[in-house]
Design a protein around this nucleic acid. Structure first.
Length: 114
DNA sequence: AATCAGGATACAG
DNA sequence: CTGTATCCTGATT
């Protein structure tokens, strides 16, 4: 038996928490929020720095990218490509740059962090 | 080296 | 058409 708090390494989400859906048409920002809402499971790779402001930090870019790749069935996914998609959110008003930009720190725009 | 910034192009739904 | 995925060049940390 593996302790639920130390479940990582080989299988990141075999016992996946599929929120009732198949996990198909999910947007990246929604996926990131799903991880942020499960700190018990993903707190080591992504967490809020300022929840009310929608500021969060990706602590383990490799793992978050790997999880995203699994969710979208894109085995070649990596942080370079995932971050490119996040950058597209700036122009769209889904995310914005933080006041003092720090590496791996992003911020949701008001309606999206709720 | 890793991450950030975008433009260009490809692709799936 | 939209929302990435992929690829690339150059800048910054």
């Amino acid at each position: 038996m593996v302790s639920p708090l130390l479940a990582d390494d080989a299988d990141e989400e075999t016992t996946t928490n599929n929120n009732g859906r198949g996990g198909t048409h999910i947007h990246l920002w929604q996926f990131l929020k799903e991880l942020l809402h499960q700190p018990q499971l993903y707190g080591s790779c992504i967490r809020w720095l300022d929840r009310p402001k929608g500021v969060f930090k990706i602590e383990d870019s490799v793992r978050v990218a790997r999880l995203w790749g699994k969710r979208k069935n894109r085995p070649a996914m990596n942080y370079d490509k995932l971050s490119r998609s996040i950058r597209q959110y700036y122009k769209k008003g889904i995310m914005k740059k933080t006041e003092r930009s720090q590496r791996l720190v992003y911020q949701f725009c008001h309606p999206y962090c709720l």
